[in-house]
Design a protein around this nucleic acid. Structure first.
Length: 432
DNA sequence: TCTGGGGTCCTAGGACCC
DNA sequence: TCTGGGGTCCTAGGACCC
């Protein structure tokens, strides 16, 4: 048995904890550069705002419907996530943190009434953290996901499902006829693993609801679609195919990419940006104790703006795998210089670290050029320690540009809330 | 004026091997 | 008429996830 615990409209809920006045009104959280809506309160969903809707297309709702938009405050959401996850872990013996707002809990060996237990955990998260959650349970991860969808939808849209399934839904506890009714009431597109493309193909083949999908034989699905969808069907039929991944494996690639707040035309600004991205990526790399063998750098113009379009990338091999910020930044700068062209309005760039290997399998080689690998490790340890103690970017590569000067290429974030939980200066003050 | 960021897995097809 | 058989590795592209 599995449970999926998922924070409702997570980013919006995090903001509401510290600004209760946002309760009950339409709120969206915007992506970087205040580009598009990436989280919506129920009231915002009711206004018809779609996931990913560009801000400039919905901003008129500020005046017309009292819509409030906030810039993404990922520092806050990450910290709230940690708190929520630690409470969700109390539901069962194992936990897989699947995304910032979701975790799967392995329930094997848990005795007693699971629904009651889940309701208690949900209440605790609500009271201690202030985040409303949905909890779904089922014999496979895909069914737990589906149950979670039902739990949230039953609460948000009265009449869509039986009310007793709201907030906490255990599909394994339903009588067969009720289970079938629930599957019939759910569209295939809601299933974990069925995206827009496959969803469309399924509907063309006459498969409209989850109930239809479960009727298909796995071998048919495999030959007509793929092994991926076959696994999904088996999981829906109650046969576990996807294990709980409670010991996250290190990432195979690490990226840091950003759209710029406004178009960039000059090389030295791109050098600054790419240096910054490479430094960020290097920090992530060291955090998972890996070394990178290659650095990929890309830059492109906006697909939306008029003017000449161009997209360039280059793969810079490293002499040996490394996690040294200086070496990775140097490689990234070499890369951007090799693909830069003037006369374009560049809108986005990024750095990806590829072909990652664990840092303990570093292969030593003959010392032909002076080996400073050990110094490098010490230097990076010191740098990470300083930045952790005194704040991000306290020490950084000079090519990223001085901290004090605003970045030409910097992100637009006009509506960001304070770092309520991670900066002393931003702590809220309560007055009696 | 204005459209996010960061991942994973699977497959087909090409290059290359004997 | 007709052009081997079997295998590995790599890459690009598609689809999905949040």
């Amino acid at each position: 048995m599995f449970a999926l615990v998922d924070g409702n409209n997570f980013y919006v809920s995090c903001e509401r904890v510290f600004r209760p006045s946002l309760q009950g009104i339409p709120v969206v959280v915007l992506s970087n550069n205040d580009g598009c809506a990436i989280a919506r309160s129920n009231e915002a969903k009711a206004l018809g705002i779609k996931m990913g809707a560009p801000w400039f297309q919905i901003r008129h709702l500020q005046n017309e419907a009292g819509l409030v938009a906030l810039s993404a405050n990922f520092t806050l959401y990450g910290d709230m996530s940690d708190r929520m996850m630690s409470l969700a872990a109390g539901l069962g013996p194992t936990q897989e943190i699947y995304s910032i707002d979701e975790s799967f809990i392995g329930l094997d060996g848990v005795s007693g009434d699971l629904t009651q237990r889940a309701r208690a955990i949900r209440a605790r998260i609500n009271q201690w953290i202030g985040i409303p959650c949905g909890i779904g349970m089922g014999p496979t991860k895909t069914l737990a996901k589906l149950a979670n969808h039902i739990a949230k939808t039953a609460e948000r849209k009265p009449g869509s499902y039986p009310l007793e399934l709201a907030q906490v839904c255990n599909l394994a506890a339903l009588p067969p006829s009720d289970f079938a009714a629930v599957l019939k009431a759910t569209e295939v597109g809601e299933v974990w693993g069925v995206g827009p493309r496959i969803g469309k193909q399924l509907k063309q083949a006459g498969v409209h609801t989850v109930h239809d999908l479960v009727q298909l034989s796995p071998s048919t699905v495999r030959s007509r679609w793929s092994v991926v969808l076959e696994r999904t069907v088996r999981e829906l039929q109650g046969q576990p195919c996807i294990d709980l991944d409670d010991a996250p494996t290190p990432k195979k690639e690490i990226a840091c990419t950003r759209s710029f707040g406004r178009p960039v035309t000059e090389l030295h600004h791109l050098v600054e940006a790419v240096s910054e991205f490479a430094s960020r990526a290097a920090e992530k790399l060291r955090r998972q104790n890996s070394l990178a063998s290659e650095v990929l750098v890309f830059v492109r113009t906006s697909p939306f703006r008029p003017g000449p379009k161009r997209s360039q990338s280059t793969l810079v091999p490293l002499r040996r795998p490394t996690a040294d910020t200086a070496l990775l930044v140097r490689a990234a700068v070499r890369g951007i210089k090799s693909i830069y062209a003037s006369g374009y309005e560049w809108s986005k760039a990024g750095v990806m670290l590829l072909d990652l290997v664990p840092d303990h399998t570093l292969q030593y080689e003959l010392d032909l050029e002076g080996d400073d690998a050990e110094d490098s490790v010490k230097l990076m340890l010191a740098m990470d320690a300083i930045n952790s103690r005194y704040g991000k970017g306290t020490v950084h590569m000079a090519s990223s540009g001085a901290r004090a000067t605003p970045k030409v290429w910097g992100m637009k974030q006009e509506r960001r809330t304070p770092h309520y939980t991670t900066r002393w200066d931003d702590l809220l003050i309560a007055r009696a």
